[in-house]
Simulated scan of single mutants.
Amino acid sequence: MSAVAPSSAVPGSPVAPGRPSPSAAAVRHRPRPRIPYLLLVPAVVVLLLGMGYPVVWQLITSTRKFGLAQQFGQPAEFVGLGNYLALVRDPQFLAVIARSIAFCLVTAAVTVVVGTLLALLMTAVGRVIRLVLQVSLLLAWAMPVVAAMTVWIWLFDRRRGVVNYLLDALGLPFYRFDWLAQPLTFFLVAMIIVVWMSVPFVAFSVYAGLTQVSDEVLEAAQLDGASGAQRFRHIIAPMIRPVLSIVLLLQLIWDLRVFTQFTMLQDAGSKSSDFDVLGTYIYKLATSSQDFGTASAFSVLVLLLTIALSWFYVRDLMKGEQR
């Protein structure tokens, strides 16, 4: 039998043994397709028009001084960085920044922990209980903020509130206790409300990540003697780390810019500046004081602060994608 001569390699077929593979340099210098970048152009244009213009307007306004004359049509005076310097020298500014960051970090951490626990609970219970829990979370998440705040303010009302009634029935000294009069209890109530409104998003996001964890791997770890805490720490947590990172990042941004909850709580209780966070402080500068220049400067600083808090998590996500 005559030997069959080896046929030439077909394009796209596996490389024969001994034949050199394409060099990494040739693959690296291969021209990239342009269609994905062209498809991104409309989204980038809409993003620049929707967000670029307000940011530029804030930057321009933050360099001008507004007063009584501007209400009668006079152009605002250009003061450069004067509004920023005035903010830095204001002790109330530093107090609001510290208060807002502390509230943001604590609330975001509590939200992610509670949301993760609820997501783990949804994977452990039966179908009926899981459905009831998911519907309850969805209803809490879909409730309008103003309607939800009306209910929460009624619950913590010092005269007719259910919370004071139940605590007083247990023998605790909470008869007509004013939760919104002291900064500590005020921020505790605000944290409870913000966590209640944010937990459903975290729970659903983490639950979606948990559905991608292999049951076989968890069963094998359980057969090897790993406890539930060990399985979560060494198997589940590393696999859902991207989900946890992104929900924590979003919670930090949202909790730093919280406004409606604090405004309605201040309207129901004390309007003291000791209860102000970034959103309410900017609102008071722009509406009560009519100081649009300082309010715009504060808004720019809040934007920079948000980028600074988010940068570490964004960099970690980018490193994870590169790996």
Rank of each mutant, 00 (worst) to 15 (best):
A229L: 15
K319P: 08
V132C: 14
F66M: 04
R315Q: 14
T294I: 12
A5H: 05
S273K: 15
A297G: 06
V302W: 13
L131Y: 12
Q92R: 15
P144A: 06
R257Y: 04
P144E: 00
V314Y: 10
Q58R: 12
R99T: 14
P33D: 01
V113I: 11
S136A: 15
S13W: 09
A229P: 11
I282W: 03
W179T: 09
V213I: 08
T150A: 13
L85K: 00
I235N: 09
S2Y: 14
L304Q: 08
D224K: 05
S296H: 05
T287G: 09
L248A: 08
I235L: 12
V56K: 07
G293H: 04
L301F: 05
I97V: 14
T150Y: 08
P91A: 02
Y165S: 14
S100D: 01
D157K: 09
K271W: 12
G293L: 03
Y175A: 12
T306Y: 00
A169V: 12
L68E: 07
W154G: 09
L256D: 02
G52A: 06
I60A: 07
D255H: 15
M1W: 13
S100P: 10
L184M: 15
T287H: 14
G67K: 00
P36D: 03
G67R: 00
P144D: 03
W254R: 13
T111H: 06
V194T: 15
V88G: 07
A3M: 12
A86C: 03
I192W: 08
I240S: 07
V125I: 07
M122Q: 08
L184I: 07
L48W: 07
I282G: 02
L94C: 02
L47W: 09
G171C: 04
